[in-house]
Amino acid sequence: MIRLALALAFSLLVIPAAHALDAAEMFDDPQLEARARDIGRELRCLVCQNESIFDSNAGLARDLRVLVRERMQAGDSDEEVVAFIADRYGDFVLLKPRVTAQTYVLWGAPAIFLVLGTLAVFAYHQRRRKTAAAAPLSDEDRREAQRLLHGGDA
């Protein structure tokens, strides 16, 4: 029994430490820290699926967070830090892709879809306007319809 209890006590001591954001790597200045987090949210953790380095617990994400802070310490602006990291790790690291020739379509997508949609709506109205309104029903037809709708008592 005592062994079991001890095994438990020890295993709790040895839960592997994850590399979540911890105080050691943080700036004391809250403004600087807020900037670091904003930058962190725009950079991708390379080994995770779609997680930013700010959110990730992976070791590599921690390394990148530390790198961001080092660059900021060295006096880089936000853009310079992001550019520095993108140069080293490629565009893959940017959660918000840069506007380049190969992302024109991506960034243009909302405008393209909205414009196409608006055109389609107007085209629809244009075309429908040309269709003549259906001729009014003859009295005989109306009577038959009434009979169908109200059963035998129409």
């Binding site: 991708r44 930013s52 893959f92 959660l95 918000k96 892709p97 190969q102």
Partner: peptide, 18 residues
């Protein structure tokens, strides 16, 4: 063959206005 990432910042900017 180019590898890029499209993450939350893109969607927030492109999707939310629509």
């Amino acid at each position: 063959g180019a590898k890029i990432t499209v993450g939350a910042p893109y969607f927030n900017q492109a999707f939310l206005p629509v």
